[in-house]
Design a protein around this nucleic acid. Structure first.
Lengths: 266, 266
DNA sequence: CGCAAAGCGATCACAGTCAATCATGAAACG
DNA sequence: CGTTTCATGATTGACTGTGATCGCTTTGCG
């Protein structure tokens, strides 16, 4: 028989792939009874991970624009579970009234999903994140000026004068391309510059990265590791890197992707 | 059998792609009965995601995201036909390679629908317009920095330093709250200020306004009528105002909403 | 103008789905 | 070893979505 968590994971995966699931289908896939699956859906709806409809459930992101969907479906297939767990752990660090920064990235985008109940001021250079927050949360949203790049939905500007110079954040959550001993790495120079610019608006840098980010890739250093206050990652991260980070004074928060998924939502 | 939500999704997608759907076609595509599809259309119309017409339904200008839908459904019910006609006429003034500005407004939003085939640089302070352009057109999109206001989807900033100071536009298309002999009128001070700021980025101001905008309403003057280079409106506009505008040197372009094409150019 | 065809809303019966309740069995606990 | 707790599965009555049919209205054509 299938375990409760397995079913949940399966339901959410299916939901992400197809946008909609039917109870009848799930019976065939999971082998569980209709009643059990209804309970599952009820719980998942309570924690905001889907919306129930007659006959099954639909993705909370369903009916979203073609912009966010394609640009994130690709990255979603890659370690989506880990990213969600890390994102949820990071979201737990937020409190109502905070002023935070979210840079553009798939992990931060997942994080935005967990901020629906919050009331904060959020500065982000990600168009999809702004969209998500403005339409599904009570947070106030601030955007930097600049050109909106289609593929990634990032707002970038070559200029320094900007309204964000008036923004002061208590925390910044940053996802990245990779983490190496040399620092936080991006692959695109413009993106690296944009993130460096955001970094000037806060003292407290929280890096969110699933364990796959510790493979060395990319070439643009956004900032050294000593700039990082906190790292949120999952238990699959290489221990020697975590030790190194702790020695540099970085607080490391480990999320167990198996447990953290839904439980902390309550 | 196809699920209700799947049909809705399919209907809305088709609507996005083609602008109009026929019940008869949907029967063939979805496999559902005519009665069911009619019910679907009725529900989708209730939630403002499309407008029913004899034989099927048409895009209400794309029932895109939860953000745009509510904010524009209200204004759409008001003179949507006129606004669309004016918007189309205004869009005809654009050429590939232009750099234009679109302020936030229902008429300019309709206009964005007619810019799908263009390749321009577009500066807009409207989130829904940016969304429309980035996901359905080849235009480059530039945004000003500032806070994103939920209801209207407008980006507003109390500060002057901004990336848009580096933007030079050949034309600005502006919709407004009303037009009076005193000038172009808005109702909200912050909006009026944002539009005045956009005005500094171009010489050539094109006002787009259906004929209902000539009733005196609102109280914030954005600019005097002498600042207007061109006015695009429909044939229902009061002649004495048009004469007055022509005397001030404003080029008046009249659109016949029935034919949706340009009649006269003064 | 009149007529035919298509589209429309209303109604009804049927099937699928829902929430609530109770019963079962397994693990946790003293 | 008995009790408690919890996830699960079955049953029930109520509800919702569906499709067929009935007139009525709108549209298009001569």
């Amino acid at each position: 028989m299938m375990h409760e968590r397995e079913r949940w994971q399966l339901i959410l995966t299916r939901l992400r792939d197809r946008g909609i699931v039917r109870v009848a289908d799930l019976v065939g896939v999971t082998g569980a009874s209709v009643a059990t699956l209804r309970r599952d859906l009820a719980k998942l709806e309570d924690s905001g991970q889907l919306r129930r409809v007659h006959g099954g459930a639909e993705s909370v992101a369903s009916g979203q624009t073609p912009l966010t969907a394609p640009s994130f479906d690709a990255s979603q297939t890659l370690n989506a579970d880990l990213k969600q767990a890390v994102a949820q752990g990071a979201a737990n660090l937020c409190q109502d009234g905070d002023s935070i920064i979210l840079n553009a990235g798939s992990t931060t985008w997942f994080m935005a999903q967990y901020l629906r109940q919050h009331r904060m001021q959020v500065l982000t250079n990600s168009f999809p994140i702004a969209q998500e927050l403005i339409s599904h949360s009570m947070n106030r949203v601030v955007l930097p000026g600049g050109e909106l790049y289609r593929e990634a939905g990032i707002i970038l500007s070559p200029f320094d004068e900007d309204a964000i110079q008036h923004f002061a954040a208590s925390k910044m959550f940053m996802s990245c391309y990779s983490i190496t001993p040399l620092g936080i790495i991006e692959s695109d120079p413009l993106v690296a510059r944009a993130e460096a610019k955001l970094l000037t608006r806060t003292e407290n840098l929280i890096v969110v990265a699933d364990s796959s980010k510790f493979e060395a890739r990319g070439n643009m250093v956004v900032c050294p590791l000593t700039r990082v206050s906190t790292l949120v990652t999952d238990t699959g991260a290489p221990p020697h890197m975590l030790d190194h980070l702790r020695q540099l004074g970085v607080e490391v928060i480990l999320i167990d992707p198996k447990e953290a998924k839904v439980l902390t939502a309550a």
